[in-house]
């Protein structure tokens, strides 16, 4: 398993690295405990909605740094609506691919960007805070990547059931007993759902 030259280039010399003082919007996702965290800062033209400047900081591995770097390139000078449409697959493709086990880095970078855009939209009255529902859980599970194939667990139909009642989120996942990534997937699900304040307890059945 090897990184593409493009990943290495962005890792060694990341574009748009750093912090914007007094940004119009910002977001931080991931956590040091998981081994990766990204912060994204935006300057947005409030008339045209064009991203005039974007910077990032990263605590993480090479692919974490490289995906955040390429994403800043992809959305610099684009409108917020255009930027929102960038997917983690496009980001990975722009780097000439990522090893499957590293796909979650791309998800994290795109997720952070979208959260920063959301932050801008909420501050400027362009969007409201999302109302929580069962769909919020499903959307969050789409960010959990099965490291063996580099695809999310919802698309892979590994999620068999999602439920929410009295603050308890129930997720039923289909993953082989001796799969080396089993614990990792369960941990990832927990980490993602723990961020949702409406969820008080998480029940994962396998």
């Amino acid at each position: 398993m090897q990184y593409s030259q493009k990943v290495l280039d962005h890792f060694m010399k990341p574009h748009n690295i750093g912090k914007i003082e007094n940004p119009d919007a910002e977001a931080t996702e991931g956590s040091p405990a998981c081994g990766d965290q990204v912060s994204i800062y935006l300057k947005v033209n409030d008339k045209t909605q064009v991203i005039e400047d974007i910077k990032f900081q990263s605590y993480g591995c090479a692919s974490n740094i490289a995906t955040a770097s390429i994403i800043t390139d992809m959305v610099m000078g684009r409108t917020l609506d255009e930027a929102k449409k960038v997917t983690w697959k496009e980001a990975a493709d722009a780097l000439d691919g990522l090893p499957p086990v590293k796909m979650h880095c791309s998800v994290l970078a795109v997720d952070t960007l979208r959260k920063a855009i959301k932050d801008y939209e909420i501050k400027h009255g362009l969007a409201e805070k999302e109302t929580f529902g069962k769909n919020t859980i499903v959307e969050e599970l789409k960010k959990v990547i099965y490291p063996k194939v580099g695809e999310d667990i919802v698309t892979l139909k590994m999620v068999k059931y999602v439920g929410f009642e009295n603050g308890i989120a129930t997720v039923d996942v289909d993953i082989p007993k001796f799969d080396e990534h089993r614990d990792n997937v369960v941990e990832e699900i927990k980490e993602h759902l723990e961020q949702i304040k409406e969820i008080k307890k998480i029940k994962i059945t396998i």
């Binding site: 290495l8 081994g35 990766d36 605590y59 993480g60 591995c61």
Partner: peptide, 14 residues
């Protein structure tokens, strides 16, 4: 502190 090991390892390798 404050940084991640794979990134250090890869830069050392390079």
């Amino acid at each position: 502190d404050y940084i991640e090991g794979e990134a250090i390892m890869l830069m050392m390798d390079i």
